[in-house]
């Protein structure tokens, strides 16, 4: 199947890209890896008259770590880079893992984490970690830059808080302190090339055997990836015994209302949220 017709524009600067995007608002798509752009265009999920390629814009493939700011992932930083980067593996192994479980080797060689979140699929594997770890999304528009907290970024299926003419330039994940650990668990049928039936990310902070802070985020259980504050509340201020973790897992399960589709039923998704919330928290604990 031939793709529908469009005009390809390789933007040479962010300013140009934003301007083009604004000018052709609603008719243009931004392209980084193209792996999540071409198949839906072929399937007529959406159309575009213009495709604006960011790959010629210098500086967007940044991957850096700052003790204060944390891990900065540029719009063109590929999932393959995240998966293999010793820096990411050291500073935030959950992010490296979440990159590795997406699609296939070939897709990850082109696809980007920023593209993954901008497509805003409910089951995307990148979002739960970002939510659990309180990431910030750096955005450039025609009138300048702004920062969107990840909690406010996803609005619906394939819908984000980006305004006309805005492009995500990077995502920054705060540093994990010594006493903080994070984990992401993807539940899918195949070990590769599969979409998550559900995904669970957890981040916990432990002091003297007591959990002092926690966040739990869920994928593929709502129109957007979501936080499960009720689950976190069950953990905070407590010693993380099996009973406590079970209660948190129960709370995570009760805080979501997924749909049934061809991949899984609602009730199975809910139960798997319980199982994998438990496992994600335990995987955090194992890292201490």
């Amino acid at each position: 199947m031939v793709l529908p017709q469009f005009e390809y524009i390789a933007a040479s600067s962010l300013e140009e890209a934003c301007k083009l995007l604004l000018e052709h608002d609603g008719k243009a798509k931004v392209m980084a890896g193209a792996t999540d752009l071409i198949p839906p265009m072929r399937d007529k999920v959406f159309t575009a008259e213009y495709v604006i390629d960011l790959k010629k814009i210098p500086g967007l493939d940044e991957l850096s770590y700052d003790e204060k700011e944390g891990l900065k992932i540029g719009a063109l930083t590929t999932l393959r880079t995240l998966e293999h980067s010793p820096l990411v593996k050291e500073k935030n192994p959950a992010v490296a893992y979440a990159a590795k479980v997406i699609a296939s080797t070939q897709i990850r060689a082109k696809g980007t984490l920023v593209g993954n979140i901008c497509n805003a699929s409910p089951s995307n594997d990148s979002a739960p970690n970002l939510l659990a770890q309180g990431a910030k999304v750096n955005v450039q528009g025609v009138d300048g830059t702004r920062v969107i907290p990840i909690e406010e970024f996803f609005l619906g299926v394939r819908r984000t808080a980006l305004k006309p003419g805005e492009i995500v330039t990077s995502v920054v994940i705060p540093p994990l302190a010594e006493d903080e650990k994070a984990a992401y668990m993807k539940f899918a049928v195949r070990k590769a090339m599969d979409l998550a039936i559900i995904g669970v990310a957890a981040k916990i902070k432990m002091k003297d055997g007591v959990c002092t802070d926690a966040r739990v985020a869920l994928g593929a259980v709502a129109v957007t990836p979501i936080l499960a504050p009720a689950a976190a509340a069950e953990l905070i201020g407590k010693k993380l015994t099996d009973e406590v973790i079970d209660k948190a897992a129960e709370a995570a399960m009760n805080s979501c209302s997924p749909i049934s589709d061809i991949r899984a039923s609602k009730e199975y998704r809910k139960e798997m949220v319980r199982v994998f919330t438990k496992r994600a928290v335990k995987q955090c604990l194992e890292q201490y």
Binding site: Y8, A10, A34, T35, I38, P39, S104, Q106, A109, K110
Partner: peptide, 29 residues
């Protein structure tokens, strides 16, 4: 498959394996 799901179209782009069905020719300039 033309959907990036089978890998039969894998080529190396700057040395890395990619699905050529999910890559535009113009993108390879």
């Amino acid at each position: 498959c033309e959907e990036g799901e089978c890998g039969a179209c894998t080529v190396l782009l700057d040395g890395l394996p990619v699905n050529s069905c999910c890559t535009l020719a113009v993108e390879c300039n």
